[in-house]
Amino acid sequence: MLTKTKTVDGAAIKKAIEGRDGKLLSSFYNDDAVVRVIDRNNPPSKPREIRGRAAISTFWDDICSRAMTHKVDTTVAEGDNLAFMQACAYPDGTKVYCAAMLELKNGRIAKQTVVQAWDE
């Protein structure tokens, strides 16, 4: 079932991420959206690709279920693009940092690229 949402903007992204609301985050995506993740385990030549809202929902449910904090530091919007920076921390002090670029179509996310790094 499609959850009706307003146009995705920085405030909505911040609220959903910081609130660890996977269902709300998933509702921001088009049915055929693609999330591309680039990190140590998924280099630029072989990024992880998560295709379709159902798979993206599973991705966000996993992230939002983890015992960690999320803080969206900065959001920048221009036309049909929205970028944000996100700092996360696990209870043991391990930190993760993420830069994300969203491409919007009809006010919803069509493509997202995430570049992330974490303490090891």
Rank of each mutant, 00 (worst) to 15 (best):
T69C: 04
A54G: 01
I13Q: 13
F59Q: 11
A12Q: 10
R40M: 10
T75D: 15
S45Q: 07
V34M: 13
S45D: 15
N30E: 15
T69A: 05
G107C: 09
A117L: 11
R36N: 12
N30D: 14
K105D: 14
T74R: 14
D92H: 03
Y29F: 15
E18L: 07
G19S: 10
C98Q: 06
L25M: 13
C64D: 02
A117S: 14
K23E: 15
S57G: 11
M68S: 14
K111Q: 14
A77N: 00
I56L: 09
V96D: 11
S65I: 04
I63F: 10
V34F: 10
I13W: 10
V37W: 07
Q86G: 01
D32W: 08
N41M: 01
N42Y: 04
L104W: 03
R108G: 12
W60S: 00
R66L: 15
R51F: 01
S45L: 02
Q112R: 13
D119V: 04
I38D: 02
T74M: 10
G52K: 03
R48V: 00
T69Q: 12
D92R: 06
W60P: 00
N106F: 02
Q116P: 00
Y90M: 11
E78M: 06
A33S: 14
G107R: 08
L104A: 03
G107F: 09
V8L: 11
A67I: 00
G107N: 11
R66I: 09
R108H: 13
M85W: 00
G79L: 00
I56Y: 06
N42C: 01
Q116C: 11
A16F: 03
I50S: 08
A87D: 13
A77C: 02
K95F: 03
W118N: 14
Q86Y: 01
P91K: 03
A54L: 04
A87P: 00
G79V: 00
K14L: 12
A87R: 10
V96N: 07
V35R: 15
E49A: 01
D62N: 12
I50E: 09
V34Y: 10
N81H: 14
G107P: 02
D73N: 06
G10T: 09
M101W: 08
E78T: 04
I63V: 04
V72M: 11
A33C: 15
D62R: 05
V76K: 01
L102N: 15
E78Y: 08
D21H: 03
G22K: 07
T69E: 14
S45T: 05
K14T: 15
D80R: 07
M85D: 11
I38W: 08
P44C: 03
S57H: 04
T113R: 13
K46T: 02
R51M: 05
R20L: 10
K105T: 08
A54W: 01
K14D: 06
I17G: 02
D9Q: 09
R20C: 08
N81R: 13
V76I: 15
C88L: 10
D62W: 05
F84G: 06
K14H: 05
V96S: 08
F59C: 06
V76C: 13
F28L: 11
L102C: 12
R20M: 08
I50W: 02
S26V: 02
Q86S: 07
I56E: 10
G10P: 01
G10C: 10
P44W: 02
R40G: 14
K46C: 04
N81P: 00
S26G: 12
G107D: 09
R20T: 12
D73T: 03
G52V: 00
N41E: 00
